[in-house]
């Protein structure tokens, strides 16, 4: 935890995956107010994968959605690229695969302060 969480976030490129428009734009607003640049927000993992081909994010916030068909391609790709990420989820931990047991989770509903402090932790490597 840094004393000024927003400090590390300014100027960072944060990928946001969230299929709900309101939640996505809330995340975007919180991050932009802290000085970050949002990649996306993307409503599908496919869009996000296409986006990171062009621009490499510094970190990512990913919504966990079980309703769209089975794919963990995006977290896999981010891990491969060494991009830290956190899950934003309404699910309990047991639906997250074992491989991501250590990945930080933000439980919905998420306030802007939490978004910024989590992003800051991801960027400084203080997150798991």
């Amino acid at each position: 935890m840094t004393t000024n969480p927003a400090a590390g976030v300014a100027g960072a490129r944060v990928l946001v995956l969230e299929d709900d428009y309101y939640l996505a734009t809330d995340l975007q607003e919180a991050l932009e107010q802290a000085g970050a640049t949002v990649l996306g927000p993307c409503s599908t993992a496919t869009d996000a994968l296409r986006l990171i081909e062009e621009k490499r994010p510094d970190c990512a916030l990913l919504d966990v959605n079980l309703g769209q068909g089975p794919s963990f391609d995006l977290p896999k790709e981010l891990s491969r690229l060494g991009v830290p990420f956190a899950f934003v989820t309404g699910y309990e931990g047991n639906v997250i695969p074992e491989a991501y047991a250590q990945t930080e989770r933000l439980e919905k509903p998420v306030g802007p302060g939490q978004v910024v402090s989590t992003t800051s932790r991801l960027l400084t490597g203080a997150g798991a």
Partner: peptide, 24 residues
């Protein structure tokens, strides 16, 4: 199990959406 997880997900999502609508 899946329905329970989905229900939880939806309730939390909807709370987040309501929060956003209230603000907007």
């Amino acid at each position: 199990d899946t329905l329970l997880a989905e229900l939880q997900h939806r309730v939390r999502n909807i709370m987040a959406v309501i929060r956003s609508i209230v603000r907007r």
